[in-house]
Simulated assay, not measured.
Amino acid sequence: MRFFIDTAEVSEVRTADELGLVDGVTTNPSLVASSGREYRDVVAELDEFVDGPISVEVIATEAEEMLVEAREYDTWGDDIAVKFPMTREGMTALSQATAEGIDSNVTLVFSANQALLAAKNGATFVSPFLGRLDDIGSDGVELVREIREIYDVHGFDTEILAASIRHPSHVKAVAKVGADVATLPPSVLDQLFDHPKTDEGLAAFLDDWGDRESPAVRELQGADDD
């Protein structure tokens, strides 16, 4: 399963990229607005180092205006996925965008039927929102499982991009049910590293070793002396 980073803060993406864990980035108008920067400037900076899709969301609500935006966004980088909303107008725009070879990410998906419509219209990615479903007492992970089953039965190429990830348990759960991608807030990605037993074990190893020098460093120093 690939990891996308869900942020418009370029510094956060760089930090994750240094860990070797960035397969793409998802943005939206809310994230960009909170960054205080121009949308295109953010995407241009990300495109310099991100080796994977960058999702850029349309602002318009009418299909023709969405397409105008999509065609422009498609010129912003080498691997742009235009985010269309799961609405009738969004699906109209998606159908034409697919015909024009524009990669896409259908956002605000809350049912398997919506995901089916997006796949039929050729979406590159479909984004079921786990956390928002959990907030209303539904099961976001079960939705991902249902979409996976439908896509596998019918041979759709659309990839499942699990979104609205709130905690590490979401990541494990969607990996188990077959999500192709999880898009993670930087805070959740950071939490994936942590376990108290890891910290405990490392502390014990270091305590046992004491203040002795690393053998690797000692070898290097010996080589330098030669």
Rank of each mutant, 00 (worst) to 15 (best):
E72G: 10
K172P: 00
Y39C: 04
P196A: 09
E45W: 12
D134G: 04
A182S: 15
L31M: 10
Y39I: 05
A70F: 07
G140I: 12
G77N: 13
D51P: 01
E9R: 15
V181W: 08
P29L: 10
T61L: 14
L21T: 00
F193M: 15
L220K: 07
K197N: 11
R148Y: 05
I5C: 10
W76H: 06
G201P: 06
N28S: 06
Q191A: 15
V188Q: 11
R88S: 07
T158Q: 01
E142A: 15
G137H: 11
R2F: 13
G178Y: 13
D211P: 06
A173R: 10
L206G: 01
V13K: 02
G52V: 01
N105I: 00
A60C: 13
V22P: 03
A70P: 07
A81D: 08
L192S: 10
L46M: 04
E65S: 14
F110T: 09
F125K: 00
E48R: 14
A203R: 10
A204F: 06
D139G: 13
E18F: 04
V177G: 13
E62F: 08
D79Q: 14
S11E: 15
G52Q: 07
M86C: 09
S55L: 05
M1H: 09
T26C: 05
G140Y: 11
V181M: 14
